[in-house]
């Protein structure tokens, strides 16, 4: 090495195998967690925009059959029908199916519709929350992984120190320095994951509660229809 001082690269290359393994794991974890962050960010933004657009359309006074048909057309064109529209579609489909028989009990109709919407809602909730558990695990575990690497590295360098006759700082310093890189990497992976998890889970909760409110409102509309018609 022509370098006089220790560079980080040489520290990483010179680290012991367990420490290197820990660093590799942390690097991969960090990359995957950033992948998830990017995907979640995009998806939640998409859902938010979609919800706003759908709600504006829904409350603009258009016939509900029209809204349903519009969604079906888009499905046939291989376009995305996602989020709150799925809740609406499953509820509306069930409602139409049940009200085809003239003599079905209105309460039974409402019950069936509500059940269908609840199923669709929980499916949407699941979609909103995908990858969030992974981010949470990264946030909580990667500092520990990094810490493990550090402890291991320091253990090794102190073991090396024990056999030396002249104990100087220069003997242990590189080992400790290289071990500390593992902790730094752990924190580097964890901090964005914590932030992203908090942000995205709050966003997902907010969206879900808006879906829920919408489904209640929609139920009340259908309720009027059943009991007046």
């Amino acid at each position: 090495m022509p370098e006089q001082q220790l560079s980080i690269l040489s520290l990483v290359i010179g680290a012991s195998v367990p420490v290197q393994l820990v660093m590799l794991i942390l690097l991969i974890v960090s990359m995957v967690s950033w992948l998830m962050i990017g995907q979640r960010w995009w998806y939640l933004r998409q859902m938010n925009d979609g919800f706003k657009a759908f709600e504006a359309n829904f409350w603009s006074g258009v016939d509900l059959n029209e809204v349903f048909r519009d969604g079906s057309l888009r499905l046939n064109d291989n376009e995305v029908v996602d989020g709150v529209e799925n809740v609406f579609r499953s509820g509306f489909r069930e409602f139409n199916r049940l009200t085809k028989n003239e003599d079905t009990d209105p309460d039974a109709v409402m019950e069936g519709t509500e059940r269908a919407m609840r199923v669709a809602l929980s499916r949407e909730e699941e979609k909103l929350n995908t990858h969030l558990p992974f981010l949470a695990s990264v946030a909580s575990v990667s500092p520990y992984i990094g810490l493990f690497g550090t402890v291991w590295g320091i253990m090794q360098s102190f073991r090396g120190l024990a056999t030396m006759q002249q104990a100087t700082l220069a003997v242990v310093a590189p080992g400790i320095s290289e071990a500390l890189i593992a902790t730094a990497m752990g924190l580097f992976a964890a901090i964005p994951a914590v932030l992203a998890y908090n942000r995205f889970s709050a966003d997902a909760d907010a969206l879900y509660s808006r879906y829920d409110t919408f489904s209640d409102e929609f139920t009340s509309i259908l309720h009027h229809r059943v009991h007046s018609g």
Partner: peptide, 18 residues
């Protein structure tokens, strides 16, 4: 395909960042 595209994009972003 579109979903995969988004994953690919996010993965690329993460790779470049690192």
């Amino acid at each position: 395909l579109r979903n995969y595209g988004i994953y690919g994009l996010a993965g690329l972003f993460s790779l470049v960042l690192h």
